[in-house]
Design a protein around this nucleic acid. Sequence first.
DNA 1: GGCAGAAATGATCGACGTTCAAATCGTCGC
DNA 2: GCGACGATTTGAACGTCGATCATTTCTGCC
Lengths: 186, 186
Amino acid sequence: MALDAASSLIAAEGLAGFSMRKVAQAMGYTVGNLYLLFSNQDDLLAEVSLRTADAMHAYLETQAAKGKTPLDRLQAISYGYIAFAQKHSFSWRLMFEHRLPPEQWNHPGLDAKQKALFEFVEGHLEPLLPDASPKELRAAATALWSSVHGLCVLASTGKLNWSGLKDARPLSDLIVRVFVAGLKQE
Amino acid sequence: MALDAASSLIAAEGLAGFSMRKVAQAMGYTVGNLYLLFSNQDDLLAEVSLRTADAMHAYLETQAAKGKTPLDRLQAISYGYIAFAQKHSFSWRLMFEHRLPPEQWNHPGLDAKQKALFEFVEGHLEPLLPDASPKELRAAATALWSSVHGLCVLASTGKLNWSGLKDARPLSDLIVRVFVAGLKQE
DNA sequence: GGCAGAAATGATCGACGTTCAAATCGTCGC
DNA sequence: GCGACGATTTGAACGTCGATCATTTCTGCC
């Protein structure tokens, strides 16, 4: 329930408006108590990120199921990613803006989530590349998903506003379509 | 020289280790003085980001000049981007991790730099797409550069470590090559 | 009721961004 | 040399933050 309060606060105010005191107040406890549940603020935020990652992954699964062809599914996943990032903007951004102190960069949970997400994409890319080796497939999935992620990042931070491109979805379509077409040709 | 001190501090300790007091101490002044030069911390950091953007742009120009063919040049630019992000990791990350308060999202300087960077890529993509309309060209350049950026972001935050892919450059090559190949086919 | 162990508290610390009255400095006329 | 006045610089003060931990409060059991 500390996690509930923290997630709500992040969703409402973002990382900038977040504080341990606000979380404590929202859950009806005092600050000291939070440090009995989490070792520090980073720890709490990492748990919130984990939650968001789970929710996003589940959402992407439902979106992927809507596609008829493999290419449809990849595009549905990309759309879902963009939609999730826009709808839960603060929570989504937390996953990337909250940088753990480097000594625990290899957070076991977060690493596993990252891996699961990439493998999820890999699974949907595989039918389109029947002749690819596992290594090639992994590289292709990583490259494709990094691309979609980059688009999402720039769109969600307003760094594409300078051009008239206010909707990221056509660009997402372009990336997936062109990337898959180029890959088949390799 | 306030900017020099601030840039050095960011380069050395990153956004997490940054404080107005440290900047003041590094330049031999006291904190109050900084607020006569910059309206607040966000303002100072925005100026540091601007500097970094300029330095990066200049560096990418030199890298682009090394390529013989248009495709070579695009790949050289991508390599340069990755190299810059790795070499000046903290400074580069500042440009994206430092999120301005939303009321001044349209910082005139930063927007101009963003635009210049994308148009720079656009200029190098153009020879490869002689038949594209200006709108198609812009979309293609935006998509391509977002992709390279996404790869760079994930690589620089260690979020690709789960797979064995420790070097981002092969993936950069893959993205540029496959993307251009797919585009030609559109 | 009394008591031990668990649970929760909140005063306290140092550091942060930011402000602004006060102190210091530089440069004139005399 | 002196005084004076504007420009420059200071650093104490305010409120908030993450984090700590001695103290208090609660809970279940005899």
